[in-house]
Amino acid sequence: MAVAPVVPDRHPPAFARRGWYRRNEIALTPWLFLAPGVLFFTVYVVLPIFQSFGISLYRWDGLGEATYIGLANYRELTTDRAFEISLWNNLRWLVLYLLAIPLGLGIALFLNQTVTGIRLYKSLFFFPFVISQVVVGLVFSWFYLPNAGLLNLILGWFGVSLNVLGDPDLATYGIIVAGLWPQTAYCMILYLTGLNAVDPEQVEAARLDGAKGWKMLWYVIVPQLRPATFIAFVVTIIGALRSFDLISIMTNGGPFGSTRVLSFYMYEKALAEFGFRMGYGAAIAVILFLIMLCFIAYFLWSIWREERGGRG
């Protein structure tokens, strides 16, 4: 007959009896959960980056033997006019794409009201972000068509005609405008969520102090939207550097290479029908990576500063 102990055993089990894992559980578990992510990130992202650095020092067609040529690919880049054009176009994209942020904020402020059916309007404004970039590209290339497009129909009333995508000076801007359409919708949705979090008491207080219009927006609303602005900035910069599908659909890099950006040029040189200069493509990729690295470093630094600020 077993007798139940009157007092429960409050002694902790002896340490020697616990396994190594149990002893380090708290420290190990997060790493275990992270392991699959870290593994795949290393294999599919980090290692290829270093591999690209390596390949960029070779002349290689992807099939035969690779020949080590040192920095010759980079030297060639400095004299390559197509590369120069791509670089400038990347800059145009970076600067003009940022217009999506104020545009998105404007639309978000406009839609942030309670009217019957506002949800419908919101979803209509969000629609361009939902549809594929390929469709956006097609729609805009039809819009720009020189003889049948809507743009020239409208311009025709003023006696003007423009071949946006056929003119090497205009084509890039034409594509950026097409890209702004979905990007603005994206920024809008970010700001709409942000506006929900704006503190009504602060707005009330500001109103009592006599703030209204631009001042209210600039000094009271926008500072409270900082997290949303940060995210909008990040996704827009990355979106601008990733611009590929629109270019491929709308102009295929043409007319005569005037709308290429670095990512498209890299694809053309390394992977497209007449490319397969893996080393040269990798060199372009490295340059693109270094540009991105500047932004990524800045983002990481901001996040780190924010977190430290939160703790302190």
């Binding site: 043409g254 007319p255 005569f256 007449f274 200069r277």
Partner: peptide, 17 residues
């Protein structure tokens, strides 16, 4: 050769315009 063809055709298009 592929690379010459790609650059060449781009030049030809530019010439036509």
């Amino acid at each position: 050769p592929a690379e010459m063809a790609a650059l060449g055709m781009e030049g030809l298009q530019e010439f036509m315009v």
